[in-house]
């Protein structure tokens, strides 16, 4: 049993709160530097596209937001599973915190895609498999948020939303592979796991910078949401009361 002890300690909200407090300023600084670097590089210094001209530059927001919308769903679902199996309070708190961030990122990728689609395809929206499955992802995130606030009982809310999150995981590979499985208006992936990216290096590096920047930014926002959730749920415990007394709040 000893080998599982580290795992259970990880589940302590107090331990998590105290540890992450020190990480936050560093992560925030890294996220800001990378976001500014990637944005300026992508918008001002990378070359125009030979077909689309400048409108392709929305890729620097669209692709990282879509990446994190998908990755964030797995974070939420894995936390839901850990919460269900080990009854870990912290996992449910992270799961709840991941939902609004994921919904926001999904919304950003849908909106930027529509803004890019109008001049490129000639339409804001098409009911193709990629766009529709992305819309379903948005509704899944909203569904988790709705379930969280629909129950008076915290445990029931956490269990119900964890199950919805787990059922929804099937949508992630569907979104990812939709452009290969079906005929869609959306083009296939430019950044591929198995072969070279079909984007020129001068445009690729700022894009990769933005992807990393979004990952760090996501971590910062997830930590902030989770810390807020910890304080809310643990507000009756001794250590939170002590903390509030020390900070001189309330």
């Amino acid at each position: 049993m000893a080998s599982w002890q580290w795992f259970h300690r990880l589940g302590s909200p107090r331990w998590f709160y105290e540890k992450t407090g020190g990480w936050l300023p560093w992560l925030t600084a890294v996220a800001l530097v990378l976001l500014v670097l990637g944005t300026v590089w992508g918008l001002a210094f990378s070359p125009e596209d030979f077909k689309q001209g400048n409108s392709y530059r929305i890729i620097y927001i669209h692709v990282p937001a879509a990446f994190l919308a998908l990755a964030g769903y797995y974070i939420m679902a894995v936390c839901g599973a850990v919460g269900l199996i080990w009854r870990m309070k912290l996992a449910f708190m992270v799961m709840k915190s991941a939902a609004p961030i994921g919904a926001g990122l999904t919304f950003v990728s849908l909106v930027t895609g529509a803004i890019w689609g109008k001049p490129t395809w000639g339409t804001w929206w098409a009911w193709d498999a990629r766009i529709t499955s992305m819309l379903i992802l948005f509704f899944l995130y909203l569904g988790i948020m709705a379930l969280q606030s629909a129950f008076q009982n915290r445990e029931a809310a956490d269990k119900a939303s964890a199950i919805l999150a787990l059922v929804g995981t099937v949508n992630i590979p569907i979104i990812y592979k939709s452009v290969d499985w079906w005929y869609t208006l959306h083009q296939p992936a430019t950044l591929k796991l198995t072969s070279a990216p079909t984007i020129h290096a001068s445009m690729l590096y700022p894009l990769l910078t933005m992807v990393v920047a979004f990952y760090v930014f996501y971590a910062v926002v997830l930590l902030l949401y989770t810390r807020h959730e910890i304080l809310r749920r643990e507000s009756r415990t001794g250590w939170v009361r002590e903390l509030i007394a020390k900070e001189g709040g309330l």
């Binding site: 070359p47 125009e48 596209d49 030979f50 077909k51 689309q52 392709y56 890729i59 490129t120 395809w121 000639g122 339409t123 098409a126 208006l185 083009q187 296939p188 992936a189 430019t190 079909t198 984007i199 020129h200 001068s202 445009m203």
Partner: peptide, 17 residues
């Protein structure tokens, strides 16, 4: 209605040339 379906390739005009 005619929609253009963009491909997944991005490159600067000089490279395309």
């Amino acid at each position: 209605e005619v929609l253009a379906k963009h491909d997944e390739e991005y490159m600067p005009p000089e490279v395309a040339e």
